[in-house]
Design a protein around this nucleic acid. Structure first.
Lengths: 340, 340
DNA sequence: CTGAAAGCGCTAACAC
DNA sequence: GTGTTAGCGCTTTCAG
């Protein structure tokens, strides 16, 4: 790689000192209009790029924020990242994205990498395997600003952006009940995640409120992918005598996996089995019948998380952890609109 | 943020010099076993993290590679990024991902950002708007290793990983022809992209080979999203007298957009209109009828691109641009299996 | 308004 | 085997 232009090159060329160049490039008001123009013109001509590495080392500030998500291939996270970038770029920060691939070990490595990269703060949505939290405590001890979003870690004192999973699950199940479904099952997320627990509680609470049975075998804790939904559905459909008449999935992919198995079994959606999901990913509109799903404003969640983090980075003194509770609405589609 | 442990802290504590610490941490054979152990033990105990910023500045080497993609929300790119990370991490590199959001200006900004971050090399899949290439020439001039993947820039001399779009389109259209479709339309990608042109050429060549008409109005150049597919389909279906009996989409999303409109119009897929896509994203298996699609090994494409780039970074002397042509197979599903 | 000098944390010649 | 020294590119006192 070619030797890049530095501030020294510009200084030499103009017979001024590097410090003046540095100031001129930053439009420092103490520098004369003339020099500022000269310097900036030459910088432009030589296509000078500041070495952010050197700036970071000098200022002990990287203007970079790290993001750890389970998988960017999940639409929710891809959108959330775009939301994070939106706020970050506008505030002059870059974003480094790491995937934990839902692995606890990988997540620990990610935090170490980001620590070494000296990011100014970290946004995390924890992996489904994460039950230990020592790696987050390390961040706390180093006083690295830290904000959790969507999949949070309760034990750690930090700002959090969470979705109102309990209420949303409650509303979704209540909708199923209003549509006349009475034997409602739940394909839940991985047990360690708070989000799984809350969605499950909301489901149970709605059933109880309406005097419907809470059948233990009708809750199946699984992962977050289509395959997980398929497996769970197979179990739920196994015994025709004790079969649910509706399924509430922890997310859209799981709900869609269930739909595929239901259709394969020759059962009608929504007349014989209703299905509802969570997230409202694009795929929910495409599958047939279209999937009823609780909308999660992923882009906004990302923006909110980034805003909290940047505030914390920029005014660390009067910092108090804040928890933002986000909600949205249920998007009702054909998968729960049965004919009675 | 708390003052982090540095090499100096360790040196002071053990009454040795910083350079010895540096060497000991790297298992330099010149250092005695005893000091190595002492140093590493203390580093461990203090939870020392090397400051990669300082290392990068010193070595003019960041062990980071930059990636510019149009959108991580596209499954293809999310998978490709995972492939890139797979190779990069194993070789000791970090990955910074930038999204151009299909905007030329944003892509230019991305290249500047990566330049300032002093990444060791850059992987690019160009935006649909990109027709000027000056920003890539800048990279060339600075001798920043550069590899294009999937959406390449022909004019720039650089390594490229491309999919055999021509052959794949040809094979897909030939499959449609074999299934008895005779009035085959094409919803193409944005005109400036080489990939759009190649897939279109493959489509035309297959029609010609089998003596089928090449109707100009049956090719509609559009974007890459479901909405684009819907719009194009509306045009294609407008005149019942001159309606195609099959549609080959430039990717799955566009094909799915078309399917939605076809179904809305009350036409049967595949009997009245056959549909084929490209990429084989998960959604292809979920839509009804399931979508025939040419498989693109996105993860592998990412891995190949990363491998080429890292080779170029690590042996810049004997470097010659290489073009890797990847292919795969057509996954036939219900959307083209008509009853005759 | 500008320059000189010091130093961010680390590494690599060069000494001994 | 280990220490000394210099410097990566930049910013920021301090001086004038």
């Amino acid at each position: 790689m070619k030797d890049p232009i530095t501030i020294k090159d510009i200084a030499r060329e103009l017979n001024i000192s590097p410090s003046t160049v540095s100031r001129a490039l930053k439009n420092n008001p103490q520098i004369s209009k003339a020099t500022i123009e000269q310097v900036q013109a030459l910088a432009e001509r030589l296509d000078y790029r500041p070495n952010t590495i050197a700036q970071s080392l000098r200022q002990s500030r990287t203007f970079t924020i790290g993001v750890i998500v389970p998988e960017i291939a999940h639409h929710f996270f891809a959108d959330a990242i775009s939301g994070i970038e939106d706020i970050a770029y506008k505030a002059g920060y870059n974003v480094i994205v790491c995937q934990s691939n839902e692995s606890y070990e990988r997540e620990v490595v990610n935090t170490k990498t980001l620590l070494s990269s000296k990011v100014d703060g970290i946004l995390v949505s924890v992996s489904k395997q994460t039950s230990q939290t020592e790696h987050f405590n390390v961040l706390k001890r180093r006083e690295v600003p830290l904000v959790f979003f969507d999949r949070v870690c309760e034990e750690i004192e930090a700002s959090k952006v969470i979705f109102d999973d309990y209420e949303a699950a409650f509303a979704t199940v209540e909708h199923l009940i209003e549509m006349g479904y009475k034997r409602i099952a739940h394909i839940g997320g991985p047990a360690p995640l708070l989000l799984s627990q809350l969605r499950h509680s909301g489901y149970v609470a709605a059933l109880k409120k309406h005097g419907l049975p809470v059948v233990e075998e009708w809750t199946i804790q699984q992962g977050f992918n289509i395959e997980d939904g398929k497996e769970a559905a197979l179990q739920l459909l196994a015994d025709p005598a004790n079969r649910p008449d509706a399924i509430f999935g922890v997310n859209d992919l799981v709900a869609i996996g269930a739909m595929l198995e239901i259709k394969k079994a020759g059962l009608h959606i929504p007349n014989e089995i209703g299905v509802a999901g969570f997230c409202d990913e694009p795929i929910a509109e495409v599958i047939e019948p279209a999937l009823t799903s609780f909308v999660q404003p992923s882009f906004e969640i990302g923006r909110t998380a980034a805003r909290l983090l940047i505030n914390q980075i920029e005014s660390p003194d009067n910092f108090e952890p804040k928890t933002e509770l986000i909600s949205d609405h249920l998007k009702v589609r054909a998968s729960t609109l049965r004919n009675r």
